[in-house]
Amino acid sequence: MRYATIKLATFISRPNRFIAHCQLAGELVVVHVKNTGKCLELLIPGVLVALNYLPSPQRKTDYDLVAVKTVTRWINIDSQIPNALAAAALNQGQMTLPQLDAISLVKREVVFRDARFDIAGTTGHGRNFFVEVKGVTLVNGKVAAFPDAVTTRGLKHVETLIQAQRQGYQAYLLFIIQVPQIEVMTINRALQPELAAAIATAQANGVQVLAYNCQVSAAEITIDRAVRFDLQQPFELPPIPEP
């Protein structure tokens, strides 16, 4: 996935979860932040950010803040990207789902009971499956964790995946880590232990939990490779640098 027109800017402040102030070519601009998570360890005053220029009369801002440059790497924070990456990878055969082969149909945003899953599909042998996709931006070194804020919606999705698995579907929880150089994916148990417990129950019922990291630049993000998911992997929140 490549953004149309990327401009590099300096992050100044984030008055609320939807907008940020950035310095671009000597001008202070208001931009839309494409992630409602806290991102406190990323959006530090003075950090380099990537802005996608999308002017339109229907928009309140001309720019979307889509990526942040840390000391060692770019991190994509666009919350709409993971679903598109996953669907494209499945359609193009770049991603495999354990226990399935010959995927013949992939659909987006499919309702099941009182929930909406990101992806649904069918194999050539008539096996139906669901995939719920979660984007990940919280990392410390080579370990990634989800979530960075308590998610009741995410918990409900896991519970519904269990119901789908019990009704004969093959269910998947897929983490798209929007960060390069990651070796293991886990759950932020200190923040939301009930989510970790629900995922353990899901795995015991046959729900498959997968994780893929990405290659990321200011203007582009692509799925890289599968990484290990370990529910017991220790995780410490990264320090928040001084401005």
Score class of each variant (00 low, 15 high):
residue 8 L to D: 05
residue 8 L to K: 12
residue 11 F to D: 14
residue 16 N to H: 08
residue 16 N to D: 15
residue 17 R to E: 13
residue 18 F to I: 01
residue 23 Q to R: 14
residue 24 L to N: 10
residue 26 G to T: 06
residue 32 H to P: 00
residue 32 H to Y: 03
residue 35 N to M: 11
residue 35 N to I: 03
residue 36 T to K: 11
residue 37 G to H: 09
residue 40 L to W: 03
residue 41 E to V: 01
residue 43 L to N: 10
residue 44 I to F: 04
residue 44 I to P: 01
residue 45 P to L: 02
residue 45 P to K: 01
residue 48 L to E: 15
residue 48 L to N: 09
residue 54 L to C: 07
residue 66 V to M: 12
residue 67 A to S: 12
residue 69 K to R: 14
residue 70 T to W: 14
residue 70 T to F: 07
residue 73 R to M: 15
residue 73 R to P: 08
residue 74 W to H: 06
residue 74 W to T: 13
residue 77 I to L: 09
residue 77 I to A: 10
residue 79 S to T: 08
residue 80 Q to S: 15
residue 82 P to K: 01
residue 87 A to K: 14
residue 87 A to L: 12
residue 88 A to L: 08
residue 89 A to H: 04
residue 94 Q to V: 06
residue 102 A to S: 11
residue 103 I to F: 07
residue 106 V to Y: 09
residue 109 E to N: 06
residue 110 V to K: 10
residue 110 V to D: 08
residue 113 R to L: 12
residue 113 R to N: 13
residue 116 R to T: 15
residue 117 F to P: 02
residue 119 I to E: 02
residue 121 G to L: 02
residue 121 G to N: 06
residue 123 T to V: 11
residue 124 G to Q: 12
residue 125 H to G: 09
residue 128 N to E: 14
residue 128 N to C: 04
residue 131 V to C: 06
residue 135 G to T: 01
residue 138 L to H: 10
residue 143 V to L: 08
residue 148 D to E: 15
residue 150 V to A: 08
residue 153 R to Q: 13
residue 153 R to F: 14
residue 154 G to Y: 00
residue 159 E to I: 02
residue 162 I to P: 14
residue 162 I to Q: 14
residue 163 Q to V: 04
residue 167 Q to C: 06
residue 170 Q to V: 11
residue 171 A to C: 02
residue 172 Y to N: 01
residue 176 I to Y: 00
residue 181 Q to I: 05
residue 184 V to P: 07
residue 191 L to N: 06
residue 194 E to F: 02
residue 195 L to N: 05
residue 199 I to P: 15
residue 200 A to T: 08
residue 212 Y to P: 08
residue 213 N to V: 00
residue 215 Q to L: 06
residue 219 A to I: 00
residue 223 I to F: 00
residue 225 R to Q: 11
residue 226 A to K: 07
residue 226 A to Q: 13
residue 227 V to Q: 04
residue 229 F to D: 09
residue 231 L to N: 12
residue 232 Q to Y: 01
residue 234 P to V: 11
residue 238 P to M: 13
residue 241 P to Y: 06
residue 243 P to Y: 02
